[in-house]
């Protein structure tokens, strides 16, 4: 049963899942990246779908086991494994929701960021946006002079949307490279950096954001 669910990644053509790494390992990596990155990353839809399937299967198995008189020790161990995976999944989804709440106006104005969200997350972002807008409108903005009523601007003379909290890409993150990375340029400097596999580094997030997305570097 578990071997069957483990073979599904192959069909998706996920090369990495195919060679040895378990989905839990991939989820843990996605969870750590999401936790450490200042901005919201691409939703790992294929992975999350597989994990959900495996969790469901395992829930059924545990139920079956506990009804059929299989030794209670193994049942409780299966339950522990299930709990650990569910914890990871919940935590992953929650961090994303927190980021969506925090940057809701930024997300609603930026289609590139929106494309990183899952369908359900998009719905959540939209509702969040509407609620917050209505709340601010009713409690504050409607009582201000006309010039200051815009929800995205400090006042009408502002050229840009200067009241929108955005993620800080200038933060420094701790990361580990997964493979040898030839000298690459760091954002905004002439310095070149080389990374060997497993090198641990504190680094300017902007300089490596694409590499995190491509899976060459993990955040820890």
């Amino acid at each position: 049963m578990t071997s069957e669910s483990a073979s599904t990644p192959g069909i998706d053509g996920d090369y990495e899942a195919l060679i040895s790494t378990t989905d839990v390992e991939l989820l843990k990596r996605a969870w750590r990246n999401e936790k450490a990155a200042p901005e919201i990353l691409h939703f790992e839809s294929a992975l999350i779908q597989r994990i959900r399937g495996q969790i469901q299967l395992m829930e059924e198995t545990v139920e079956e086991f506990s009804g059929s008189g299989i030794d209670p020790l193994s049942v409780s161990l299966y339950q522990m494994d299930l709990d650990r995976t569910q914890y990871l999944l919940r935590s992953y989804l929650r961090i994303r929701l927190q980021k969506i709440e925090k940057y809701t106006f930024h997300i609603s104005n930026n289609s590139e960021v929106q494309s990183r969200l899952s369908g359900q997350e998009k719905g959540f972002a939209r509702r969040c946006n509407e609620d917050l807008e209505r709340h601010l409108e009713e409690s504050v903005l409607s009582k201000l002079p006309d010039n200051y009523r815009d929800i995205l601007k400090q006042s009408l003379i502002s050229e840009e949307n200067d009241m929108v909290p955005e993620p800080h890409l200038d933060t420094f993150v701790v990361c580990k490279s997964r493979r040898f990375l030839g000298p690459f340029q760091l954002d905004g400097s002439d310095e070149l950096l080389e990374m060997k596999p497993d090198d641990l580094c504190i680094i300017h997030y902007k300089s490596i954001r694409e590499r995190v997305q491509e899976g060459e570097i993990d955040l820890v």
Partner: peptide
Amino acid sequence: FALKINNLSAMEVNIVRPFV
């Protein structure tokens, strides 16, 4: 822009991370 901290352990990283 980058600071190599090889050989630091997970707990040590976690403690110095906010400050550094």
